[in-house]
Design a protein around this nucleic acid. Structure first.
Lengths: 227, 227
DNA sequence: CTTTTTATTTTTGTATACAATAAATATCTT
DNA sequence: AAGATATTTATTGTATACAAAAATAAAAAG
């Protein structure tokens, strides 16, 4: 993304500087950000389309309130779409180059878990690999509409890959969770190789439950933080 | 929608006045439409987000080329999401009021097909009822993310409910197609009533194939038209 | 005192001017 | 003449002024 202003506003919303429910006027934001109305006018519809803002009547926007239930639904939606992508990929059959890249991801994960525990550094490495693995599936599924939808979902608040951080839940718990998720990666890769579309889709849907667990932890942590 | 300019541009794209691949500059469009750059500047990102335009580099947009394959993928994506909505609805159980509204749709459809044939007027009535039926499922599925995604898909070119018109394929063929689709509605309603989420989802996915057939016909017709 | 109408204020919609940047062309050096 | 560099041109980014519309407040009528 190039537009720096939508990023600034995203951060302000996620950090709570712009609290949920707050009404946003072009003039007010322009003054607060020391720019003219024109760029904020360009940024607001984008943020609304990304799910950060709600339109209030036909006049202006307000910060969308954070709804944990809705975040879970977003997460599930992503799993469904990724499942569909996996089905497509299994159906058409992955290229040999793609299989190699997938195997690289699997090997990296195996290396991490072979120790029997995970460190904080491992989490970063796993997160990077995990994102790459998912991208491999989605980018090669052959359906641009699915890709674009997933890109939008990944831009939505609270569920993008970047927030799947595990450092708030304890390393022991993270180990089990990540290990299980990595197991899904293995079985998914197998299903794709074998051309088993139904199975690939089912695995990815179940895979989402792992992420859901992580989000629950995150919500709990953020709630404790505010008390 | 309020923004009349995006509508005008949509029409110009769909009608071919702005041919696929054409580069769009703010100043050029502003002159052609006799407005200033400001409103077109607001409209272009919206059209891009809706899938009518592609970004060319970091500088401007071009009209996205019409790809039949991609339209089919969009259609399938919609079926998958509607299937998910149907699953949700079946899982949580529909309210009695909702069941009544669904039954009303079913009865309207039955009345249309009881004659054994369809007229052009019937097509309008069926189309209206069909849209209402689908809305009932989606609006009551309980997942705002799914609803918003479907709203976006319905805004995309060539697959919105409004283009599911059948007057180009002959009334005999339309009868069979619509009758089959209506049968899906019946079985779907039953699955929802019985709380059979898996079945509801499967039916709606299959339901999409009917629409796919209609789109094929439409594409053929539009290709013949241009020759 | 309530309701309707009118005036005021707030906020968004549009137009235009200017600045910044990327693309294209021309110029210069070797 | 080829490549690199400067200059020009085209196009988007930003700021500001003004117009239109909507919300709010005030005033008048019943």
């Amino acid at each position: 993304m190039k537009n720096t202003l939508v990023h600034r506003l995203r951060e302000m919303i996620l950090s709570g500087e712009l609290p949920a429910g707050e009404r946003l006027t072009e003039i007010g934001l322009a003054e607060k950000l020391s720019v003219s109305r024109t760029p904020v006018r360009a940024a607001l519809p984008i943020l609304a389309a990304d799910g950060f803002l709600d339109t209030v009547g036909k006049r202006g926007y307000k910060v969308r309130s954070f709804d944990p239930e809705q975040s879970l639904q977003q997460l599930e939606l992503r799993s469904v779409l990724e499942g569909l992508a996996a089905r497509y990929l299994a159906k058409k059959g992955p290229s040999t180059g793609l299989i190699k890249e997938i195997d690289t991801c699997l090997a990296e994960g195996d290396a991490i878990f072979s120790k029997g525990y995970v460190t904080e550094d491992d989490e970063d490495a796993y997160g990077e690999m995990n994102a790459r693995f998912h991208s491999l599936i989605v980018d090669n599924c052959g359906s641009k509409p699915v890709q674009e939808m997933l890109a939008k979902i990944n831009n939505m608040p609270f569920i993008g890959p970047s927030v799947l951080v595990f450092n708030q839940i304890g390393l022991e718990r993270a180990y089990g969770m990540l290990f299980r998720a990595h197991g899904h990666h293995h079985t998914l890769a197998e299903a794709i190789r074998l051309g088993e579309g139904d199975r690939a889709e089912a695995i990815f849907r179940e895979h989402g439950n792992t992420q859901r667990e992580s989000l629950f932890s995150r919500v709990e942590a953020s709630l404790e933080e505010r008390s």
